[in-house]
Design a protein around this nucleic acid. Structure first.
Lengths: 206, 206, 206, 206
DNA sequence: TATGAATGAGATTTCATTCAT
DNA sequence: TATGAATGAAATCTCATTCAT
């Protein structure tokens, strides 16, 4: 029973292709991945890939966007709904998120951004607007809430909310590069970081 | 007998080439840099370059090693000689070092490692042995000294000395990617980070 | 019962397609024109186009034939009906025709024949039989009539009736290529040519 | 005895390649000729070809220029040196030239210009400046000399010197397209044309 | 009929690497 | 050593043509 040469699935194709590309880029990096390899993984011909993505660069950008967008929306929604205290939020949902990233496919994306980003300024711009600045804004909101609550004192963290993100990047990169040489307990790492930060900014309840 | 001033000395060639390569990789990344371009920058023919470096990958590895080694030795020496207290050391030489990296050519190197590292396990291995593990060891030494001194209490930092490095990576990456969108005061960022950490681990002297 | 105005009639399809193709070929030449572009211009799907024309080459040939045939019939009819003297014919209908070509869409066709003809011998054969040899025959008829009338003497023109056509080709090509650099008054050009020829072959009536 | 894989001949290469390209374009036209085919004919690798010509279009332009330039210089020199009467010149060197073209490789070039010219305006511009306008100027010079001599009367030919070139184009195209169907005696054709023209513009010596 | 998603052969171009000189 | 002309494998991209729907 011959399998059909054609499978008409217009709607699913782009996602199938970007998924395949994500996987391929993850293994070899952008430059070293051949378009044909992506097509093969997606079970599609080279030609069809080019029907959906005009260039390889185009495909790359779509990979980043497609991957980030849904996850981002989920996260932001999460923050807004919660009626946790600031500390509860940081130790709860935020910490969960931070622990997840270095183990999830997102870590690949981070490596891709670092590696290829500088060559794609418009992608960076998009990422900035849609991901980073939104994320920072969310963190600032939480901190402000903590201050209003009397949980937190004002601190340098208000000026550098990035301090909360920094270990996420670090453990992601560490995992990618040095895991074979020395494993990093990323969960413990994140927890300790949060501990340090909270210990410094929490108002004494004595 | 003075050597003619503009006469290139054979012994300098490899270094001249790796310097040129570093500059080129910095601008365009590894894959997008053509060997010919490196040769031209070094004022050397392609053929000669291949006499010193058997492949482009070879050249890449040499770039990393040549760049790191001298700086590393200086840094390590610095630590051993000092008779500062642990806190003085962290707020002094260590902080200086941490502030310098994101502004120095070393930041390029970091990006290169993240981008290309996974494809060169032996390079990672070398980097691990000669750079990272040594650096971590040095930090551990400092912390231990602090504990012995009664300056610091034992803390999660003993298990995760990487927490002290993490913001270096972060501000380097941030600078590379997002500076056009939002500048980060990397000095302040590093200082705040150290403040938080020290605040948490310092023994109360009351 | 009036047919709906905007309803395409099946019988017109091939003509609509060849017209669209003619326009496209005119702009970009045969090779650079994509079949999809032709289909789009004709308001038809690629698949349907292939229902009418088995290959792109097929389409090309149809373009030539469809374009030439109707015009040709008109012209030939014109000659046969006339009861003008030979000179009147050459200075009248023939000259009109010759003046028209370089300005009409037919000029595109000429360029296409020159450019692509050599690759399509059967098209050339068809063109020869249906266009060129008929045209030459018609000219020969006129000249013979002139001789019989005592208007013209026998001359080299009897052996080279092409001499009357040659400036048509020339002004067509010139217009296509060099108009931006130097306009050619094609009407004057044709008239002068006919003048020279007639001056040489006309019998002195003194 | 193995033949050498390399033949270092920097100076000859470009000419070898354009010659090969000329031949290939002649047979198949520009679009249908693959760069690889040209390289093979030139006994050279594809890569080397791209070392000398950045794109296929570049190669095309070089073909035209390289071919025309030397011939052109020869022709112009020819005109200037001669101390023939105007009629002698037209019936002598000019007629010779006109007879030669349709049989020479130049005819290929003409077809290429007609076919591909419209897509390369800068090439047309070059051709206009370096070939066509110079050629016309030369013809005008001859005619003026004839008038000054009292050989020729002023005529429409002064306004349309192209009339002398037109049959060259015609017989070239005819030869290319219709030779298999009906041979044209291009020599006789050119001679007859000149006869007609001269008969009309020559001053009566009665 | 009619569509346009899908194919795949093939075209142009690039570039790490080699090697005659 | 030193050069850079030359190679050739491989990568990106195009487009005529097919065929499931």
């Amino acid at each position: 029973m011959a399998k059909p040469r054609y499978r008409r699935r217009k709607e699913d194709r782009p996602a199938e292709i970007t998924d395949a590309a994500m996987a391929a880029f993850a293994e070899k990096g952008y430059a070293a991945t051949r378009v044909e390899e992506v097509a093969k993984r997606a079970g599609v011909s080279k030609g069809l890939l080019y029907l959906y993505f005009k260039t390889k660069e185009d495909l790359f950008k779509a990979v980043i966007r497609n991957f980030v967008s849904p996850r981002l929306d989920a996260l932001i929604g999460n923050i807004e709904d919660s009626d946790l205290t600031a500390e509860q939020f940081l130790r709860g949902p935020f910490l969960d998120f931070a622990k997840t990233v270095p183990k999830s496919p997102a870590r690949i994306l981070i490596r891709l951004m670092v590696a290829e980003g500088p060559k794609h300024p418009d992608l960076i711009a998009w990422y900035w607007e849609n991901v980073v600045s939104k994320g920072l804004q969310a963190i600032r909101l939480v901190l402000e809430k903590g201050v209003q609550n009397g949980e937190f004192r004002r601190s340098a963290l208000d000026d550098f909310p990035q301090l909360l993100i920094s270990p996420i990047l670090f453990s992601t990169v560490w995992t990618t590069l040095f895991d074979p040489h020395q494993k990093l307990d990323t969960d413990g790492f994140m927890e300790s970081h949060i501990d340090f930060v909270l210990h410094s900014i929490k108002v004494d309840k004595t």
